[in-house]
Design a binder for these strands. Structure first.
Lengths: 361, 361
DNA sequence: TTGAAAGCGGTACCAT
DNA sequence: ATGGTACCGCTTTCAA
């Protein structure tokens, strides 16, 4: 906890060093560096020369303290190696950098305590916004928890942004950037149904996860729309990973029920399902069709390339950052009684080669 | 005009607010919060109650300025969505969090100017270390550039850490964490050769990229060791992406040369190569064998699962952070027998199902 | 044990 | 156009 000054730290030049060496006042140096105030060409050159000589950079902490400072966004996610999250992070980071903002990243490992600790840590950093990525469990508790985060952050002049998570009910100062999750699943299931599939194995994800629930609902609605009875017995819940896809298919192949297509909750799950099918000597899509969700690069790297639902992850990240940036600039006095904007982006089916009409023997 | 002028609403609560409301001095509050100084139980309780009431968190910038502060690592990489990089980042971030450190992330988009700007930005932040990920181009300039970064950072009490990049020559204050890149390629090529392959299409990566060069060298050495002439005409340089793998194979299939195996520079390139082979009606591995490099999750999601070289990316990240943390704490007394400046981790071949002896008609 | 006060490195307002 | 200087919020002597 106690951080002593480290050896070389004494060597870092300060604005006073620069002022002295250039024979000017600190105020002048500050002006030259900020560039937001008229300064004589002569002074500017004198100062800049010393700055280069000393390899001086301003101390960001001091600057923040004094009022200025670089706005910073914090991106908190479950796991940075998840392709979908990584794309959102890229969108946020890219948009942040474009505006000269900084990005902090933290991973929660799906641990509520770590999430709380990180939110507080970010609050200490005085970040302009905290972006939370990914689906959520436990709706009731989630709502309470996030509302608390939102207010806490808001009191510190920061903004909570929920990306790909349920938006908050009531009068809570937060921004939500979402995608048409259920609609995407509806379209994807419809695609399968219109190809003639009726017995489809559904692997929506974890039963308690918000995104999984939405995808399942979308699929159900599609079945209804097609006048096909949706059989709950065809659903297998589990994590968004390839192992789950593999096991679920392997087991269904062994113990039934019979199916002609797999509707996977994510592309990664679809990849696992594909492996299991192959291992059983089945061809995709000749014998069984598969579709995924997310449209991460993996989808087009598989053979056959996966028909899936495109989710604009990177764009969501960009949009999220833009939203807080706008709020920050335009903001000012009007943030009373606003229950947080709620932006939702569209999804669409990307047809590739993993679906064929069922061939009944 | 909103009339919300409730206590402390004019921004976030400061240590003075807490002190006042608790009827104690700011010094006492500071002591209670830092916890590194004896304090009466009574005082502690009084202060903590107010802290909770006000939902107070210390201002990290002020704390840093005053000498305390959370150590922060900056991770700079080309692109956060690259699986290999993401795993290194995960390792760094995880190890950092474990120690209560913070992680900043920046992406350079392979632009030297952005890299420079980011290094300076991180220097402003007073980060404990700047971790640079990924291969490097242009050896001579690279050496100069990095040496400059290293010294600049060092003068500010920060440490430059190069991960998966060439180490620096001469007496430069930097730490390198690397893996046995050439050795991995040597082993991988040997695997192919020992299976009987002699005509192998080599897709090492960009000609100027350090990792690509190492992988190519490793392959060449393996050919020599097997007494097989290495034909430069079998090499196709290009980026580490699936498109390059696809095009290179497609073109070789059309215009020659003939080959029975593909030695790809990364798993992603291998994925592209596999697609091209399939598109041409060739089977993997019956007609053509393929091997990759990196062992990212994709390798085992492909069909057939890819035989590849495992690189301990996440561990490298952990090791990198540990190295700087040790350096920071140890200050003078470092662990004996360990050269903390250049660490290199091992690689090994992971045999899966993408290789078979060649079948010559 | 607790309090008062001197910085830490900048910024910006007030003079000149 | 410059210089002087009072803060920003916190940590850490130095006294009491």
């Amino acid at each position: 906890m106690s951080q002593r000054k480290v050896s070389g730290d004494a060597g870092r030049a300060t604005i006073r060093d620069v002022a002295e060496q250039a024979g000017v006042s600190v105020a002048s140096v500050s002006r030259v560096l900020s560039g937001n105030y008229p300064v004589s060409e002569e002074l500017r050159r004198r100062v800049m020369k010393v700055v280069r000589d000393l390899d001086y950079v301003t101390n960001a902490h001091a600057r923040s303290l004094a009022g200025g400072g670089t706005p910073t966004v914090a991106i908190l996610m479950d796991n940075i190696t998840g392709a979908a999250f990584a794309h959102v992070a890229k969108g946020v980071e890219g948009a942040a950098t474009l505006r000269g903002w900084l990005s902090l990243v933290g991973t929660t490992g799906n641990d509520p305590e770590r999430e709380l600790a990180l939110v507080n840590l970010m609050r200490q950093q005085g970040v302009a916004a905290v972006v939370l990525l990914g689906g959520a469990y436990d709706q009731d508790e989630y709502q309470l928890r996030m509302a608390r985060f939102a207010r806490s952050l808001d009191a510190a002049g920061s903004r909570l942004v929920l990306v790909g998570r349920p938006s908050l009910e009531g009068d809570v100062p937060a921004t939500t950037v979402d995608y048409d999750n259920e609609g995407g699943a509806y379209a994807m299931a419809s695609h399968l149904l219109s190809a003639g599939h009726r017995e489809v194995l559904v692997l929506p994800g974890h039963a308690g996860l918000s995104t999984a629930q939405g995808r399942l609902r979308g699929a159900q609605r599609a079945f209804e729309a097609y006048g096909v009875t949706f059989d709950p017995g065809m659903v297998r819940h589990g994590p968004y990973d390839d192992q789950h896809g593999y096991r679920a298919v392997e087991q269904a192949l062994r113990d039934g029920p019979a199916f002609t297509a797999v509707l996977a909750g994510t592309d990664v799950v679809a990849a696992g399902a594909m492996q299991a099918l192959r291992a059983a000597g089945l061809r995709v899509p000749e014998d069984v069709s598969i579709v995924g969700y997310d449209d991460i690069p993996l989808a087009s790297q598989l053979t056959p390339q996966l028909t899936t639902v495109h989710v604009p992850y990177e764009e969501m990240g960009r949009v999220a950052l833009r939203a807080v940036a706008d709020l920050r600039e335009g903001g000012g006095g009007r943030r009373k009684g606003i229950d947080g904007d709620h932006l939702v982006l569209g999804t669409h089916v990307v047809v590739r080669n993993s679906v064929r009409p069922p061939t009944r023997p």
